[in-house]
Nucleic acid binder design. Structure first.
Length: 505
RNA sequence: GGUCCAUUCGUCUAGUGGUUAGGACGUCAGGUUUUCAUCCUGGUAACAGGGGUUCGAUUCCCCUAUGGACUACCA
């Protein structure tokens, strides 16, 4: 049995989009599931669109996601180099092989000439296709005598090598996800395999590399489906065994129509990229927004695939275990930012208090607060169920670290009764009398005091909470006061009474 | 325009020639709680439309509609 070898082959033309990350992820899962090899190949044959920093970004993104590369630029391997610009010397000979056996030809048409032909065709309501219908009338090695085109080449005239598409033939092929597909070559054009700048196009380069690298399965985006017949027929021309193909459905915009794009993220306030992109037009990343890689990966994995069970939370190991290419969907998935948050919430609450406290401590440090891990563990334990991100812990617990600056007017209106100030003063002395200021003790003593005086529990405790928190929110009140301590509690009671008194007047 | 691909609640999806078409996110309501949130319970909501095939179709076939991709010397 042939070893499973798959590759993720992005172009370094900018930051890696989450659709690209998902493609990488599915390749990785498939490889690991089948004890195979996951290869990272950089496809930088387009000199014009190359973007500095993109290659690093791709590798950093995969690393953050926990997608480990087996063979690649940094990892090495027996099939290198793994960057197409470093493999430049390889491709020309393969284009020549096809030309020599008559499956490809040299074409001298300039970009301007072709542009004009396209415009012309469009004007007449036709589509210009460079194929058998017209190739004999254009400037190429099929339409001119051998001596002439050889002379042009010798003179240094720029030219490309095009594939000579058969005239009328049904190409049958299989896709692991989509099944059987038939396309007639009459609708296909004579694709350029080798460019005038001395670089191969995608079609030639990826195919040669996949063959040389002994790729067993090509798992890539649906946008490649239309060129699959070309690739099949190229394998045939070379006399090579084609790998198996699987074309992944697209990721769609959360609302409206179309493919997810960078602008959607900007517009709707969620990232479209795994990491912050610092160059040129900057872009937000999931990492910086506070997402855990586990949650990010979990979410992406389930966008276009699921194992058929009702389980939704998967670790990478579980994904590897459950993944199968046959269960990948055919149709595109709309990305849902709300559910993304829920995944992070689910992963966050799985963390231990200690882990979370460490993460929260880092966050607090950045805000200039310094606290013991033990103290923070108590706090995160109180609120971890209710937050989506570590940074939310701060907005849920800020009153632990500082007395309220203001008091919710709505709560004052509802809960601050004429007798309240006096009750609060009374409460203060009750608290002063508690021996051990723990949550349980103070709760017991306070509740006893309330019932002995026949006060209204809701009224008293809501007013108390208002003084401590400044609003009607937060965890168990006695947990809060025991954490901030008796002194601070008393201080807040006194301050609150006087501030509110001045407002109520 | 042409070629190819797709179509189950708002979204992600399960599922079958006969099911009360299931789950999750969201949303709504109730309960718990001293508050907010969590949590629990319940509700809401879908087989794009039309023809076939069949005793029966959401499921198989065809057509239409809609959506998408591709249609570069970009990947």
């Amino acid at each position: 049995m042939q070893q499973v070898r798959v590759r993720f082959a992005p172009s370094p033309t900018g930051p890696l989009h989450i659709g690209g990350v998902r493609t990488a992820l599915y390749n990785y899962l498939f490889a690991k599931k089948n004890n195979g090899v996951f290869i990272l190949r950089i496809e930088d044959t387009d000199l014009v669109r190359f973007v500095e920093g993109a290659e690093e970004y791709i590798m950093d993104s995969l690393k953050w996601c926990g997608i480990e590369v087996d063979e690649g630029i940094n990892e090495g391997g027996n099939y290198g180099p793994y960057r197409q610009s470093d493999r430049k010397h390889i491709y020309r000979q393969y284009a020549d092989i096809l030309a020599d056996k008559g499956d490809a030809y040299y074409a001298f048409d300039t970009t301007e000439e072709l542009e004009a032909l396209r415009k012309n065709a469009e004007k007449e309501g036709r589509t210009f296709i460079y194929n058998s219908s017209i190739r004999e009338r254009l400037r190429n090695s099929l339409s001119m005598p051998e001596s002439q085109w050889k002379m042009l080449i010798e003179k240094g005239e720029p030219y490309v090598i095009r594939y000579k598409m058969p005239v009328n033939e049904d190409i049958h092929f299989e896709d692991l996800i989509r099944g059987h597909i038939v396309v007639n070559t009459g609708t296909l054009d004579d694709k350029v395999l080798f460019k005038a700048d001395g670089m191969p196009t995608y079609h030639l380069a990826h195919l040669v590399d996949d063959h040389l690298m002994e790729i067993s399965h090509v798992i890539r985006g649906e946008e490649w489906l239309p060129s699959l017949p070309l690739h099949f027929i190229l394998y045939r021309s070379f006399g090579w065994k084609a790998p198996l193909f699987a074309h992944l459905p697209l990721l769609l915009k959360p609302d409206g129509k179309g493919k997810l794009s960078k602008r959607d993220g900007d517009k709707m306030g969620f990232p479209v990229f795994p990491l912050y992109w610092p160059y040129g037009e900057t872009a937000k990343g999931y990492r910086e927004e506070g997402y855990y890689p586990e949650a990010f990966i979990n979410m992406l994995a389930l966008l276009g695939w699921n194992p058929g069970t009702e389980q939704e939370i998967f670790s990478m190991d579980e994904l590897i275990n459950e993944f199968s290419i046959e269960r990948v969907h055919k149709s595109g998935s709309r990305f849902d930012p709300e559910k993304a948050k829920w995944f992070n919430h689910s992963w966050l609450r799985k963390r231990s208090n200690n882990q979370l406290a460490l993460e929260f401590r880092d966050y607090l440090r950045a805000q200039g607060h310094h606290h013991d891990i033990g103290d923070l563990e108590t706090i995160v334990g109180m609120v971890k169920e209710r937050v989506n991100f570590v940074r939310d812990i701060w907005s849920e617990t800020d009153f632990f670290f500082r007395a309220p600056e203001s008091y919710d007017q709505e709560v004052i209106r509802k809960r601050w009764l004429p007798e309240t100030p006096e009750q609060m003063l009374e409460l203060e002395s009750v608290l002063e009398g508690i021996e051990k200021f723990s949550s349980e003790n103070s709760e017991q003593v306070v509740k006893q005091w309330i019932s002995e005086n026949k006060y209204n529990t809701g009224a008293v405790l809501n007013a108390f909470r208002l003084l401590i928190v400044g609003a009607s929110r937060g965890p168990h009140l006695f947990d809060i006061i025991s954490w901030i301590g008796r002194e601070e509690t008393v201080r807040r009671i006194e301050k609150g009474i006087s501030v509110i008194a001045s407002q109520v007047k």
